[in-house]
Write a protein that binds this DNA or RNA. Sequence first.
RNA 1: GGGUCGGUACUCAAGCGGUCAACGAGGGCUGACUGUAAAUCAGCUGGCUUUACGCCUACGGGGGUUCGAGUCCCUCCCGGCCCA
Length: 395
Amino acid sequence: MDKAEKIKEVLTRGVENIYPSSAVLEKVLQSNKKLKMYWGIDPTGKLHVGHGVALNKLRQFQELGHEVIILIGDFTAMVGDPTGKSGARKPLTRKEVLRNAKDYKKLIAKVLNLKKTKFDYNSRWLAKMKLADVIELMSHFTASRLLERDMFQQRLKTGHEVFAHELLYPALVGYDCVALNVDLELGGNDQTFNMLTGRTLMKKMKDKEKFVLATKLLVDPSGKKMGKTEGNMVNLDDTPEEMYGKVMSWPDNLIVTGFEIATTVPMDQVQRVVAGLAANDNPKSYKMQLAQAIVTIYHGEKAARHAEQQFAQVFNEGLNPDDITEIKIKAKNIIDVLVETKLAASKSEARRLIAQGAIRVDQHKLEDDTFILDSVDKDGIVIQKGKRHFVKIVK
RNA sequence: GGGUCGGUACUCAAGCGGUCAACGAGGGCUGACUGUAAAUCAGCUGGCUUUACGCCUACGGGGGUUCGAGUCCCUCCCGGCCCA
């Protein structure tokens, strides 16, 4: 790929929108100007494939020689991105944030060149702000502008409360880019509002144009949320087998988007997938390729191949996977065993699962909930719940 | 500050004195069907046990009325809307 092609890929692949426009950004990229850009993350949860999209995009920029900063929103995490109704989320301790950040770094290293990546924390400037600074910052916004955000609108419409401090959120994350003095911000399309707030602020406070690049989200082509499959969000620290399995359970219409945003598979190859699907090829084979491509990024090729082989073994042939988590337990009664192995959350649930025929012991469906596990030999006993949860009881 | 409506399980949301562990929807889990799909269909979805028209815990907090309260009353806390 030459530079022109790379620039084109940066501007189009997995991109939902560019502000002020793709054309303007293209010009800047073609000049030899080095851009300073950042991507902000909330350190409250796990990194998942949705984040992988941004990482891939950042890597492309990095390859073109631009400067990448990853901003951990440790301070804004305390405000909480306005979701849910109670706002009762407990603030993270400094320790938790640092631990999360450390985990993030490890995962981010799979995609980005860490030597060329800076990490920063927005508490560095936000924690120091005085009330006068906050007042000055807020004076750049109108109340209605802050309330425009869809989430607020929805809550107002349905009579739910919007807390005053939540209105600060877009302003604070918007201020990050001023503090960092960047040329470009990258984020998921759901962050567009916040990113544009920052763009406005940058113009007012520094008289500088900040580009905003909003990446596509992992949704099906109709724009609908993943719905049921949301539960199959792939965390970047999932084991290869989990990751592979979760991708396989995505709906078929996510395949193409998945290739585009979550992998580095060349786009002309992705086009072939599109053609294949249009020609009624079995989507399963493409989904397997996708799963393998994604697992390869985070765990390497070997692990990906193994995950695929395990997947076939368990789901096509109905056998047990090779490596099952082994647990030593005290309980003997099957109900207690299920609870102790965490396959069931409570004894009641354990009984329900058995009644529903969800529990297998060494491949045999269990119908008796008074079953006693006594003689555990050296090979152990495999307990299966549903299709994909296995635990091996060992001595 | 005044008026008014409201606070129910993971979420939304019924409920108007007993038959309420609480309708319905979403989500989750399990089963069938499959390509571990998705869609669809079915069951389950507070806990405990002797699995029973059983016991305990739950309908913002506390108190009361009643044989009996998510449901009525008092009070406190919190929110929406209107007025100031």
